[in-house]
């Protein structure tokens, strides 16, 4: 009844689609990390209007479904006269979404750094940008790394939503082959295994990074 040999000849296509999934994930994580850092710095800037912008972005992004955001970017932007291809639309929406979550992770990390660290740096004549860059952020990143890892793995899985805006990533490919061969269990289980391989790979890299950062001072 179950015939996994059927899957074999599709493996090259599925691997290729997995690569697209990885590309979406890595690019949107990169966007999220940069956008998140920027947002977190606004959020704790002490300047009211900037804080309000950051809070609004986080509130809207975390409070609405990712699917709605992806569909809005892909179908909404063309309606406003901005043409966007499926792949960049998916990356943009996912990155934008991740930015809000990363912002809160950064913020928690930054706020976990004892006030004495900042006072010591101030007493040495260091200004705010220097204190952030050299004293606070390097320590905050270590604190935030596990949470960032979780968020990255979530993002990798959420990249499957890109299939809904016609990006041929792993989910899209699996659906197509499953339907044409009428072999849903075979292809979806294969897809699940491929996702599992990718998330395990992510975890592995993150664990390595955590260990490396902790050797010296914890």
């Amino acid at each position: 009844m179950l015939d996994f040999s059927l899957v074999a000849k599709y493996i090259p296509y599925l691997l290729e689609a997995s690569l697209v999934t990885l590309e979406i994930a890595v690019l949107s994580i990169a966007i999220g990390l940069i956008l998140g850092l920027f947002t977190a710095l606004l959020r704790i800037s002490g300047i009211r209007p900037l804080e309000a912008i950051a809070r609004f972005y986080i509130w809207v992004t975390r409070g609405t479904p990712l699917l709605v955001q992806i569909l809005l970017v892909y179908f909404g932007l063309p309606q406003l006269g901005i043409d966007i291809a499926p792949f960049p639309a998916a990356v943009l929406a996912l990155g934008f979404n991740a930015g809000a979550y990363f912002a809160e992770i950064y913020r928690a990390g930054i706020q976990s750094i004892p006030k004495g660290q900042i006072e010591a740096a101030q007493s040495l004549g260091m200004g705010y940008p220097l204190i952030m860059r050299r004293i606070v952020l390097p320590q905050a990143l270590r604190v935030s790394l596990p949470a960032m890892g979780n968020e990255s793995i979530t993002l990798l899985k959420d990249s499957s939503l890109a299939s809904l805006v016609t990006v041929t990533e792993l989910m899209m490919a699996s659906q197509r082959f499953a339907a044409s061969n009428y072999a849903f269990i075979e292809f979806y289980i294969t897809a699940a295994v491929l996702y599992l391989v990718m998330t395990t790979f992510f975890s592995f890299i993150l664990n390595r990074a955590e260990k490396r950062l902790s050797i010296s001072d914890r």
Partner: peptide, 21 residues
């Protein structure tokens, strides 16, 4: 910042930067 450069401070809790040697 001019004054902070001329005035050193030592804290009860040391406040060394833990991520630096």
């Amino acid at each position: 910042n001019r004054i902070r450069r001329e005035v050193g401070m030592v804290f009860q809790q040391f406040n060394l930067f833990p991520h630096m040697t």
